[in-house]
Every structure is written in C-alpha cells, then in structure tokens.
C-alpha cells in the first residue's frame, strides 16, 4: 500500500515536471531576454511547491501544521519575486520580496506566540 502510494506520487510528479519542461509556454513579457524559456518554467515549479503548501494548509490536522505551511509559503514568495526580478529586469520586484520576508517573519512570530499562549490562559 505504502509503496504503491509512493509510486503513484512519483509518477504524478515526474509527469508534471515533464509537461512543464516540454510544453511551449506563451508568456509574452519574457521574450526580450535570451534565457526566457527556463525562467518561465521555473515559475511553474515554484507554483507546484506553493500548491503543496496549500494542501498542507487545508488538510493539516493541527493548527501548528497550518502555521508551518503559511511560513513556508511566505519564503517561497520571496523566491518568486527574485525570479520575476531576473526575468523582467524590473528591480522593484526585489523590494516586494524584502518587504514580504519582513512581514511574513513578524506574522509567523505572532502566530507562534498565540499558539503558545492559548494553553497558558487555561
């Protein structure tokens, strides 16, 4: 049962990666740069990772699982902003990334404190 699950999951993953790598993507604003095809597909791989985080947010059995997934989602968005900076050549995407990293860190700390304090009040 376990190995069957593992096999199905790995086949799905490899199929997604092959599809992303082989399918021609019609994204207009990347076309001035020479390394366009790779960066356009990199965004799709990051979207797959973000989708895994969303799965953990919806299905997580405890609140702590959801907080972990939200934290990881924030870090992924910083990487997303970095790839957008490289591919479009607009430097203000990196400003968004830095601001997002700061906000996400403070939000995670606040959520963790809330998780810890819930028990102390009882």
């Amino acid at each position: 049962m376990k190995s069957a699950n593992w096999l199905a999951g790995s086949i799905l993953l490899i199929a997604f990666l092959a599809g992303v790598m082989l399918y021609p993507l019609p994204i207009l604003f990347f076309q001035e740069l020479p390394h366009v095809p790779f960066l356009g597909r990199a965004l799709f791989i990051l979207l797959l990772s973000a989708g895994m985080c969303l799965y953990r947010i919806t299905r997580g059995p405890t609140p702590a699982d959801r907080i972990v997934a939200v934290d990881i989602l924030g870090i992924l968005i910083v990487g997303f902003c970095a790839i957008l900076t490289v591919s479009t050549g607009r430097s203000w995407y990196m400003d968004i990334g830095i601001a997002w990293a700061l906000q996400s860190f403070i939000g995670t700390l606040a959520l963790a404190k809330h998780l810890e304090g819930k028990r102390l009040e009882e």
Partner: peptide
Amino acid sequence: AGIKALLCIVFLSLTTPVAAHAIARGAHRS
C-alpha cells in the same frame, strides 16, 4: 536589485531558524 538580493539572503538565513524555533516551542507547549 543584486545588492538587495544579498541583503535578503542575510536576512532570511537569520530569521527563518528563529521562526522555526518559535513554532516548535509553541507547538510543544500547546
């Protein structure tokens, strides 16, 4: 943009372990 990326590396590698530590502590205490 490149300098900001370097600053962001320093910032992330300092803050992410702290956030992980806070979540683990909070989860164990709750």
